[in-house]
Design a protein around this nucleic acid. Structure first.
Lengths: 186, 186
DNA sequence: GTCTATAGCTAGATAGAC
DNA sequence: GTCTATCTAGCTATAGAC
């Protein structure tokens, strides 16, 4: 029982960055190993089922991150709604490197990825929507309007990440983030 | 000089569908050949530089499609603005199979694809934006507002495609299309 | 211009030393 | 628990018949 060279958190963060930027098919085990600081064979020790298990573990990690940093925070009634939003926006900016990153959920939502990881992707998106719906009702929106706005936030942020990447500039991401903040200003 | 078994248009359409749903790394030459109705070696006859040339040709095809079915149509002053919009929406619905397809521009906008095809992706996105900006100014928006709305249309449609795929339902795509139509109702 | 067959390589995955 | 070395399958790409 040797000590772990790399702990789970570091490991998953490295793996996530490769899966996000390259996608499931594009991420090779060599790259995944390199980014995580382990050799291929060691990755198989940590994830015996290989690439599928690696990806699934990363998606669980992402799901936990979203739960903690978006969903639970937006549902936390002991914090002022606009303060929650402000903190969540900061977290989202960190997650997406201020618009310069590819969302792993979209990277994996190709034919290959959806077939295998569809349920996990859906779960994360739903957490996101539930969080923003909660925020909306807390500032006085009806359930219906709050849900519509929550979808709009998700749609616009995902879309702005695509367009930012396609145009090679994060300015539309930044504009979009500002307009999201406006949506909840009372 | 044998006759071509498959013409360029059919060929490119088949290739596009695989590249859209699988992405650049995920699309194998075997799949590309199968979807196009030719054998691998025949694909190399048509595209001597291989997968890169195939993808580049498909992106040119997409660019021409967008130019004709979105940009030029939206800029056609001899048609009523709202009629142009209506027709363009129909074309977009066809392109994206009413929300059930993956946009090839987003499929290729991963690290691997952007590095090689970034300029072509950017060109198509800019055509889209220019078209909707034209529509906006024609119904009385200032240049600034028209451009903001054009970005919003692109961002929302791209985002709604992602979320539709992630949730396994096209309903948010359809809602988004309706709200786009609303944006230009005078 | 399209095909079958195959070369050469890199992918995912495993064996076994330490 | 991590490593080096290696297996096999599938990949991109090519050769050469028709």
């Amino acid at each position: 029982m040797r000590p772990q060279k790399i702990n789970d958190q570091e490991l998953l963060m490295g793996l996530m960055s490769v899966l996000s930027s390259k996608g499931y098919d594009g991420a090779s085990l060599n790259e995944l190993a390199e980014s995580s600081g382990l050799q291929k064979a060691s990755l198989y020790y940590r994830f015996p089922e290989g690439k599928k298990e690696i990806t699934s573990a990363v998606l669980n990690f992402v799901n936990e991150w979203i739960k903690k940093n978006i969903y639970l925070l937006l549902s936390n009634h002991s914090i002022e709604p606009l303060v929650r939003l402000h903190q969540v926006i900061k977290n989202i900016n960190t997650l997406y490197n201020n618009g310069d990153a590819i969302c792993i959920l979209r990277a994996l939502a190709m034919d290959t990825g959806v077939e295998i990881f569809g349920a996990q992707i859906k779960e994360s998106l739903q957490l996101w929507i539930k969080g923003f719906t909660s925020l909306g009702t807390d500032i006085g929106m009806t359930e219906k309007v709050a849900k519509e706005n929550a979808f709009l936030v998700l749609v616009q942020i995902q879309g702005s990440l695509i367009v930012s990447r396609g145009l090679g500039s994060t300015s539309i991401y930044k504009t979009t983030i500002k307009s999201v903040e406006e949506m909840y200003r009372t």
